[in-house]
């Protein structure tokens, strides 16, 4: 029981040196005070590590082109839509502990009640979370919450923008939230051995595939129409996080995770 926690903690701890490397390596030049407009722009963009971030983005684009996207396209082609929905619902249901904890940490009892009720109904009537009957029969829609959002509600600033290969757009606050989400998830506390590890990695792998699948069209569109996809993603990520934090409408569904592209999963399932 102790071993898996430690290995997961150490995985989260891996992020720290990576973060340091990102911050210490190339920095964008801050415009002089004599150019207030450029300075305002620089501050608004909030990307002092831009040269390094862009290099990491290039790495990500290569990984995406040769691994992530092809796998996601294959998944979409081979697995029929109802099965993919089921997978997405199960992943969303498994995120309940994290969402519930953050509903409560943000002092949102009604949303916490929704989350708990959905979990009970979907885990039983919804056959282990495969069918989202809480929404289709009872009209209670899922929502996402994560530690990054809770930290934001508690007044923690986002910090400088970061781009991390595979994980995607982020910042120190959301990255810490992402780590907390992994460490605090009770599903990662139970048992050990090959079966448990298999389930844990299987779930992580499915989350990546499901997320990328839900983003195929969106990212294709960005790559096709943007003159600078790096800055498009940066702007979109920061705007979307701001909307999520303010709980303005249900921007992200339950299967979404805290950082990066994570929110993509089921992002087309919008509030109604």
């Amino acid at each position: 029981m102790r071993q898996p926690i430690r290995s997961r903690l150490s995985r989260a701890a891996l992020a720290a040196p990576l973060l340091a490397a990102v911050l210490l390596a190339g920095c964008a030049t801050r415009p002089p005070a004599s150019d207030p407009e450029a300075l305002a722009d620089y501050q608004q963009t909030n990307d002092p590590a831009e040269p390094t971030n862009r290099r990491l983005y290039a790495v990500h684009q290569a990984i995406d082109q040769y691994a992530l996207r092809p796998v996601a396209v294959g998944y979409r082609a081979v697995v029929p839509q109802p099965v993919r929905s089921g997978v997405r619902n199960v992943l969303g249901n498994l995120r309940t502990p994290v969402i519930l904890a953050n509903d409560m940490l943000q002092g949102e009892p009604r949303r916490a009640g929704d989350t708990l009720g959905r979990f009970v109904i979907n885990s039983t009537l919804g056959v282990a979370g495969i069918f989202d009957v809480a929404e289709s029969w009872f009209g209670v829609r899922g929502h996402a919450e994560d530690y990054g959002q809770t930290l934001a509600r508690w007044g923690v600033g986002e910090g400088p923008y970061l781009f991390i290969p595979v994980i995607g757009p982020s910042n120190p606050r959301d990255l810490v939230g992402f780590g907390l989400g992994i460490v605090s998830d009770p599903l990662s506390w139970f048992g050990q051995g090959a079966v448990v590890d298999g389930l844990v990695y299987g779930r992580a792998g499915m989350t990546v595939v499901d997320t990328r699948e839900s983003l195929i069209d969106t990212i294709d569109d960005v790559n096709r129409t943007s003159l600078d996809s790096y800055s498009t993603l940066r702007s979109a990520y920061r705007q979307r996080r701001a909307a999520e934090i303010s709980n303005a409408g249900e921007v992200a569904p339950a299967a979404a995770t805290s950082t990066g592209f994570g929110v993509g999963t089921g992002m087309d399932q919008q509030r109604r």
Binding site: T45, T232, S235, Q239
Partner: peptide, 20 residues
């Protein structure tokens, strides 16, 4: 869409192209 404004995103894109 999804809390993301088209004109804000595009402003950031064009500004980035000019700056670079």
């Amino acid at each position: 869409a999804e809390g993301t404004s088209l004109r804000l995103t595009q402003r950031s894109e064009y500004s980035s192209v000019i700056q670079r």
